[in-house]
Structures are given as C-alpha cells and as structure tokens.
C-alpha cells in the first residue's frame, strides 16, 4: 500500500478519477460512447482528441523539464509549423494531392528541427537560462509565422491534410494515433536506450554526470530539438483540425497548458525524475472548457 501511496502518479490519478466521478454525477451521459458511421463518439473521445496536441507537446516538454529546462517556444513553433504547411499546400496547384501534403508536413518538421537546434544552441552552447533562451523564439516566433502567412488566416481545403486533425483510423481519431505513436517513440527512446537514464542523470546532478563522462551538451540539443518537433506535429494537428493556419491563435497558451500538464503529472520542475505517462492523465484532467 505504501508503495502505491508514494508513487508519483498516485495523486494525479486520484484527482483524475475524482474529476470523472464529478462529471458522471453532473452529466450522466459523460461516459457514453457510441459508434456512429464506424467512428467512436462521446465526451471521452472528444477529450482525448482535443487533448492530443497538448499531449504531444507535453511529451517533448517532459524531457526538457527533466533536464532542468523549460521550453516556452512550443506555442510559437505550433504556429510556424501550421503556417508553413498551409502556405505550401495553398501554393501548390493541387492541394488535395497526398504528395503535396507530405512535402508540406516534412518541410514544417524540418523547420521545427532547425528551431529546436537554435534553442539547444542558446541553452547548451551560449549557456542562457532555458526560460530566457526560449522566450526569444516565443516572442519572435509568432511574428515569423505572420511573415509566412503574410498576416492572413490561411484556409486550406485539402482532404489528406484534414485527415491529420479530424480523420479517423479504425474508429479512433488520427490525432490520437499520432499522439500514441509519439508517446511510444518517446517511451522506446527513453526506456529501450540509455537516453532516459542520461536525461534523468543530467537533470538531477549535472556535475556528477559530467564527471561520469556524459555529454550533456548533445543531450540538451536532442531534447530541445525533440520538443520543437513535437510542437510542430501538434501545430500541424491543430491547423488541420481548424483547416486553417492562424499565426496569432494556433497553439496560443499551449506551452502553459503543457507545462501545467507535466507538473501535475508528477515531473519535478527541478529536473530529474519524470514520468512520461503522467501527461496522459494530466492532460485529460486539465482540459479547459
């Protein structure tokens, strides 16, 4: 019993179950899940689908926070990714073409990769505090997104692109599949390789880790890049769901939601121990009305 009580996931799970209980009493239909046209429908499905982008970002953020860092720029990166993909799709002669969408998505992810490297550079090489380093991109990022969209809200009409945010696969929203895939990837990377051990170690005791021969610089580059790519994926899902790139509002405040989710999920902001399954719970419970 004491093992259960001291588990970092104990309180988050209790709170989540309590919230579900409240909902069940207040809205009896809360847990109803129906199958319509071969898709799942219901409040719970909505919660999970709408939570997917935040969840994706929270996975990246968890790793960043585990290294004693923070990434404020994810919201801005969402907006940039959305802006890039939509402008490419709009600029092509055939927006409905799968190839076009693939090019758009890959370009957005590559740009995010560069932005992540930039954050990593400021933190690991220049040695700027993470909160400040990522503040730069947080501030400038939406401006850059505006630059790409030329201040317009870019509405795209592309079936393959729309699938990302609103499609279903085997009855479950595609966005949820994506989140699950990233979660699995993160779990694989941190649990099947030594990455998890290294990240925890650097987060808890950077100097001991250095003396043990860890390369913390490369590690910081990796987590900030991963976080940025996660943010871009979330941005693509959000944009696709709204079928429009809105440089001002795509992913607005999502960094704060994600940080909150990570913290509620039991990862200490002081770095170190983390729980990558935690954001799943936390996100579902922190859904904003």
């Amino acid at each position: 019993m004491s093992r259960v009580l001291t588990n970092r996931l104990f309180w988050p799970v209790v709170v989540l179950l309590a919230l579900f209980a409240v909902n069940l009493v207040a809205f009896p239909g809360f847990f109803a899940i129906e199958v319509k046209n071969g898709h799942l429908f219901g409040s719970l499905v909505d919660i999970v689908r709408n939570g997917a982008p935040t969840l994706i970002i929270a996975i990246g953020m968890t790793l960043v926070i585990a290294t004693r860092g923070i990434d404020l720029s994810v919201g801005a990166i969402c907006a940039i990714a959305g802006a890039i993909s939509c402008s490419i799709i709009l600029g092509s002669p055939d927006p409905g073409n799968v190839g076009t969408v693939v090019v758009a998505v890959i370009t957005a992810l590559l740009v995010a990769l560069v932005l992540g490297l930039w954050n990593g550079f400021l933190v690991a090489v220049i040695g700027v505090q993470p909160i400040i380093a990522t503040l730069v991109l947080m501030t400038a990022g939406r401006g850059i997104a505006m630059l790409i969209t030329e201040g317009q809200i870019l509405t795209v009409n592309s079936a393959p692109f729309k699938t990302l945010g609103s499609g279903f696969l085997f009855g479950i929203p595609v966005a949820v599949w994506i989140a699950a895939a990233i979660f699995a990837l993160a779990a694989l990377l941190t649990r099947r390789t030594a990455l998890g051990l290294f990240i925890e170690s650097v987060g808890i005791n950077p100097e001991a880790s250095r003396q043990a021969g860890l390369r913390s610089r490369g590690l910081l580059f990796s987590v900030y890049t991963f976080s940025a790519v996660c943010a871009a994926i979330a941005g693509l899902v959000l944009t696709s769901n709204q079928t429009a790139a809105d440089a001002n509002n795509t992913g607005l405040f999502i960094e704060l939601d994600a940080i909150l989710a990570v913290v509620i999920g039991g990862t200490s902001l002081a770095g170190g121990r983390y729980s990558s399954s935690a954001p799943w719970w936390a996100r579902s419970s922190s859904r904003r009305s």
């Binding site: 390789t193 030594a194 990455l195 051990l197 290294f198 925890e200 170690s201 808890i204 005791n205 100097e207 001991a208 880790s209 003396q211 043990a212 021969g213 860890l214 390369r215 590690l219 170190g272 121990r273």
Partner: peptide, 25 residues
C-alpha cells in the same frame, strides 16, 4: 555534489559511467 546521482537507483548509478562510455544507443 559530484559523485552520486541521489535520486537514481543503485543499479543506475553503477551503470552511469559504463553506459556513458557505450553511448546512449
């Protein structure tokens, strides 16, 4: 301050230098 990683297990602490030598993959 410079030796143990207090919040990791004995096993993880023991593995740290060897694992760092082998690389993350």
């Amino acid at each position: 301050a410079e030796g143990i990683v207090a919040e990791l297990s004995v096993r993880d602490n023991l593995a740290l230098a060897l694992q760092a030598d082998r690389g993350w993959f």
